[in-house]
């Protein structure tokens, strides 16, 4: 395998994706945790975090992730999508299309996500904060899994 700029960008794209997945999942699970006394177990320790501290990390990682995805996207269009179409793997093409659209929507949700997590909006927009964080987490998981599957189909060659 040659470590071309595209391959390096794709590996960076996946590594940032892993970090983003971890951050937003940690925050989301913590949101849904029922308020009760914290025990010494893994679940209680995993969810027993300050949810606020994840906001800047999620915004930064998501923005970098979309930027990296936008950079490698032309290489996908030529080197991956055309072979997919030749192999009649239209569901794979459609899956990638959903990934790009959802990523764009998630990118545009970042200002709202940041605003909803500001302390002054904590009481008035609790339901929105849970909803938008859940949507962002869904997008991150969906895009990560689709990217992983497509990479398994086509590989880096």
């Amino acid at each position: 395998m040659n470590f071309t700029p595209t391959v390096i960008e794709l590996i960076l794209h996946s590594l940032v994706g892993v970090a983003l997945l971890g951050a937003i999942t940690h925050q989301l699970v913590s949101i849904y945790r029922k308020p009760r006394p914290r025990g010494p177990g893994f679940y209680d320790r995993y969810t027993g975090v300050n949810q606020q501290v994840f906001v800047v990390a999620v915004v930064a990682l998501f923005a970098v992730e979309v930027l990296l995805g936008g950079i490698v996207y032309p290489a996908y269009r030529i080197d991956v999508r055309i072979p997919f179409e030749e192999m009649a793997l239209f569901s794979a093409v459609g899956s990638f299309e959903s990934k790009e659209h959802f990523a764009g929507i998630g990118f545009a949700l970042l200002p709202l996500y940041y605003w909803l997590w500001r302390p002054e909006n904590a009481d008035s927009h609790r339901r929105d904060r849970i909803g938008i964080t859940s949507v962002l987490a869904f997008i991150v998981w969906w895009d990560f899994l689709i990217g992983h599957i497509l990479n398994n189909i086509r590989g880096l060659s």
């Binding site: 929507i105 949700l109 339901r127 929105d128």
Partner: peptide, 14 residues
């Protein structure tokens, strides 16, 4: 309380 409807709706349309 309904801000989440917008991205969900757009994703469904996509």
């Amino acid at each position: 309380n309904y801000l989440w409807v917008f991205p969900v709706g757009t994703m469904l349309i996509c």
